[in-house]
Design a protein around this nucleic acid. Sequence first.
DNA 1: GAAGGCCTGGAA
DNA 2: TTCCAGGCCTTC
Length: 272
Amino acid sequence: MPELPEVQTLASQLNRLLEGREIEGAEILNGTLLETPRQELEKNILGKKIIRVLRRGKYLRIDLSEGWTLWFHLGMTGQLLLRLVSEALAPHTHFLLSFAGSNEQLLFRDVRRFGTIAFTPTAEDAFPRGVQNLGPEPEEWDPEAFATLFKTRRGRIKSLLLNQTLVAGLGNIYSDESLYRAGIRPLERAHRIARRRLERLHGAVCEVLEEALQWGGSSIDDYLHADGTRGRFQEFHQVYGRGGEACRACGTKIRTVKLAGRTSSYCPRCQK
DNA sequence: GAAGGCCTGGAA
DNA sequence: TTCCAGGCCTTC
């Protein structure tokens, strides 16, 4: 489940590893993940240089020379890995980029195929719709404005945190962990939560994301760094994936509830 | 605002 | 054999 810290980790690594490289080949092994017409990409990507690799929400963005941008969304099980051309190709590989004068390739693989690839001009109005619809990044929100945003909504706080048009980058892991840290239950109606607690939630979100980033994100099932190593923040999860286990703070059993088809975990004692 | 669909591997 | 994981989009 690559969320903000996982995608940011990858973007930083790939930026360091790929900056300045010239694209010599692009192989689309499975076109179903491609949001852009195949010919559009094939016609325009060759010879372009990688200027920088960035993140926006859960999207990884690769800016190329001459005003083109390559986008990846990792869905649930997406991976971006560097491989030597001599290595065996892992199953479920959907896309390959090769570089001039290099025996390394960037590959995109995704077992469950919830991921997407897009190739667009580097212009806001040409970006994929999912990107255009994104709300501000968590740290871009002023805490008071963040509180107001939720104070005016009647939905469950957890569902709203997952809504990418409000705040970009949170998925199931970091919304649960943030709510735990802020002491708020996932099913609480947003407008019923006190302003200062919503401001505290904003602080919790920023803290959790920052710590996760420092540990290279969470590797649960499939998430890997570009070099194949794993993130370690899963070792510090307080509630996500810990249903039925004891809360590390108070010993109470972590409870799980279903919300819009997703599992939410929380401590009934620490979260009121 | 809520629910269903897409997709596959692994666990029950 | 069935269920579950959940990103995002579409439909109700």
